[in-house]
Amino acid sequence: MTSVDRVQPAVSADDFIKGLWRENPVFVQVLGMCPVLAVTNSGINALAMGLATTFVLVLSNTLVSLLRRAIPRQVRIATFILIIASFVTVVDYLIQALSLELHRALGAFISLIVVNCLILGRAEAFASKNTVLRSILDGLGMGLGFTFALLCLGGVREILGSGALFGIALFPAGFQPWIVMLLPSGGFFTLGLWLLLFNYLRARRLEERGEAQGVVP
């Protein structure tokens, strides 16, 4: 007896890698913008936020995937939100226990991980349909992709805005920091420029493949 009737796609490295670049949650899918813009005024905040989101994403993906057969379709969104909110509360307390300063710097944005569309999106689109191992890999990939994007923004904004990276001064004393980069508008500009870069790279790759239409969706 063969198990043709129960085809489960095998675990593949692609589950992990796709989130990092090709389906990067921020630059390609444009999801979860609020924390991306709000907490990226320094590298360390960006890193902490990215790791907290990854943590929630991996755990909620795991639990959703474990329970996917026990949850009826009609109440799935409600249960997903419950699960996500619990893990976010857990992260909130863990960060408070680790470092009060970090908790103050991130402020309410830790709690706001709950409404990050990325997490609910992955639970709904991936974890509720796939095995635990694949869901964990997917969560890890997406989470690290998200962290990478946050670091791209946080790095640029901290380097230009305060002339330092992770608190280490990079420029000679005469450097006049671009304060605007630390302000909210700096967040919008930086993200806009990164998206532009990604659009450009994608358009060029499409052209190289001979599919001449490099149009942005």
């Binding site: 249960t79 699960i83 619990s86």
Partner: peptide, 18 residues
């Protein structure tokens, strides 16, 4: 069953971490 079960699980998790 799903809602109450998940609710209880989450409650337990939150309280123990707290």
């Amino acid at each position: 069953r799903a809602l109450v079960g998940v609710g209880m699980l989450c409650g337990l998790l939150i309280v123990s971490v707290y």
